[in-house]
Structures are given as C-alpha cells and as structure tokens.
Simulated assay, not measured.
Amino acid sequence: MSNIKISVIIPVYNCEEYIGTTLKSVINQNFKDYEIIVIDDGSTDNSLEIIKLTLKGCGIKYKIIHQKNAGVSVARNQGILASEGEFLVFVDGDDYILENHLSELYVEGYDFTLTQFAKKHDDRLSNYNNFDFESILTDEFIKKELNMEILFNFFQLAYKADIIKGNNIFFTPGVVYGEDIEFALKALIHGDRIHVSNEVTYYYIQRYDSAIRTTEYRRFDVVEIFENLSTYYRIHGKNKQADLIIYSRIPRAIFGNMNYFFYSCYGFEEVMYVMKKKNLFSKLARFRGNLKFKIKVQLFLLNPKLYYKMWFRFKNSID
C-alpha cells in the first residue's frame, strides 16, 4: 500500500520562464510523504529540460510524463491516472505555492481541504479572501458557489483521490474555459465536508499574454459547461443544486462575462451578436434570486443599448 499522502499534479506547456520557480516551490515544502507528477503537454521550448534538471536529485518521489500537445485537461487527467497519493493537489506550471501549502491542505478526516490564494502581478497582490467558517458541508459550499457568494478556484482544494477515481471524475478535454470549476463541482457532491484554512498559500500569477482576447468569446462556453453540470447533478439526485445552476449560476455567468467584454473594450454590437447567436438572452432572463441583480438583468433585457450607455458612463462593477 502506498504511503504517499499527496500527489501534486502539474501540467506544463511552454512555461520555461516560470516552471523552475514553480517546481522549486513544490520541492521546498515543510511536508513529507508526497509525490510530484509533471505532465509536459508537448512543449516546444525548454520546459522539459528545465523540469528534468530541477527535479533530478530533489529527494522527493517524482514522475515526468511527456505527451503530444493535447491540452491542459488531458494533461491533468494523465496526472490523475498516474497518481498514488491519498489526496490530489493541482498546481499550474506558471504559478507557485508557499512552503506550508501541502501541510495546510493535509487534514485527516475530511474529503476535501481548502486554502486561500492571491493573484500576483509583479509585486502586487490582490484577491485575498477569508471565509467565516473553518469547515463546511459540501452541499452548503456548492450552494454558496452557485449563488456566487464566495470567491473560489479549483486549485484551492485538495481532493480525496478515492472520490475522484471511484466516480470517474476527469477534466473535460477540449474545453478552454470552465473545465476546472466543472471538475471541482462534480467532485464536491461525492463528499461530505470541507476543511477550510484562511492561510494564503497559493499564488496565481497573472500574465497579460493569457488575457481574454486569446480566447475571444469562449468565456461564454462556461454556459454549456454549467448546463452539462446541471444534468450531472440531476442524475445524482441533486435537483436543488441543478436548479441553482439554471436559475442563478448561468445567468450570473452570462451577465458577468458580458460586462467583462464591455470592460475589455469589445464593441456593443459585437457582444450582442455573439449573445444572440448563442441564445444567451433567454437563459439570462431565467434568473431567480437577489432583487438587486434581478433589476439589473431586467433593465438590460428591456433596453440593452441604454444599459450599455449607462454602464459605460458610470463604469459599473462586473457582477
């Protein structure tokens, strides 16, 4: 039987500028009994050479998997299949973690554990987050996420490996935006409770070369991801959560991404064309919940052009 407590899964594609720092942060943990699994997704730069050089002689069990370029989802899935740990932890190849990341995440008696993250650009940090609970039922956590009451990213969690593998939960290949939250929200319904730490132990590095224009309007693909997740929830008897997706999470995602495009200086007519083509107006109109947000949605649906002019004038925050 394996005595590995945590498998750290790191997908890499052309990260030669960052992967050395990432791996050193994973190696320098104040935690024992973990393995490092790096999946090189067909990098064309020096990433693979840096990975081999950095891990050689590190004293920690590691695996390097090289595959033809197939995308981050396939890379992460390969890491899951190769893992031997009790828990799975994901770190992206251009981010890094603090030395207590794994020790904060390994808490016995829980199906999932969570720490906080901060966005980092140059020397600036943002998006510190604190939860007012030390543990929470997974159903309650899902409800908060679907109502967008909490800021959450999939890499904050450690996942019980038996839950992931026992329920055949994998990242959806070919999806550019939303595959990570889909993975997390699928996994969470199969567990009972999450342990929560308010320690910031993960640094998400913001790179302007990965800005929204590189994926254009594929941010709206998250709607299909959530629709598929709703179906998954109904199959597993989670009808209330499925309804929250349809009547709360999807409308919020549409409205938030629409405002993001406005903020990123996409033209009004262009955004409206894409939304009509994707049939997003009718899905937005299904919103049920918070009155303030509902009024915003109704004002937009009554007169999109007027809403845009008012938004542009006051530079409203993205909801």
Rank of each mutant, 00 (worst) to 15 (best):
G59C: 07
D123G: 12
I181F: 08
K277E: 15
I245A: 12
D122L: 15
F31W: 05
V107K: 10
I136V: 14
L98V: 01
R288C: 06
D95V: 06
G85L: 14
K292D: 13
M275C: 10
Y273D: 15
T138C: 10
M1G: 15
R213S: 08
L23G: 13
Y208W: 05
Y13L: 09
I6W: 03
N279D: 15
V297G: 04
L81T: 03
I169P: 03
S230D: 12
S230M: 07
G59E: 06
T231K: 15
D209S: 13
I64D: 08
M275I: 01
E182G: 00
N28S: 11
N129P: 01
S83Y: 04
D132C: 00
I194S: 12
V8T: 15
I318F: 02
Y203N: 15
F220Q: 00
I169E: 07
V89N: 04
Y208H: 10
Y202Q: 03
N290M: 11
I318V: 11
T115R: 06
K278H: 01
E49S: 14
D139N: 09
K144P: 01
F312P: 00
L301K: 02
A242Q: 06
Y273Q: 13
H66N: 12
F171M: 11
K296A: 11
E35R: 06
F155P: 03
I6A: 05
R234H: 00
L188Q: 10
I245L: 07
K160A: 09
I189S: 09
G85W: 12
F152D: 14
P251N: 02
V107Q: 09
S7Q: 02
E227Q: 11
R76H: 00
I150C: 11
L48W: 07
L306I: 14
N316M: 11
Y203M: 07
D45P: 01
R76Q: 04
S103T: 06
T115Y: 04
R207Q: 15
K278N: 13
I163W: 04
D221G: 00
A161K: 02
M275F: 14
N239A: 04
V200G: 00
I60K: 14
L151Q: 09
T115G: 14
M1L: 12
I189F: 10
E99M: 13
S7W: 11
T21G: 09
Y177M: 07
L157Q: 03
Y273H: 10
I181R: 02
N257T: 13
I142M: 09
I4P: 03
Y232T: 02
F90S: 05
Y232S: 09
S248H: 14
P304Q: 13
F152E: 13
S317W: 10
T44G: 00
I194E: 08
I163L: 15
F112T: 05
D95I: 04
T54I: 00
G166L: 04
V271T: 15
N30I: 12
S2E: 15
F183W: 09
Y273L: 13
G191Q: 08
T21Y: 08
F255Q: 02
V91Q: 05
I150G: 10
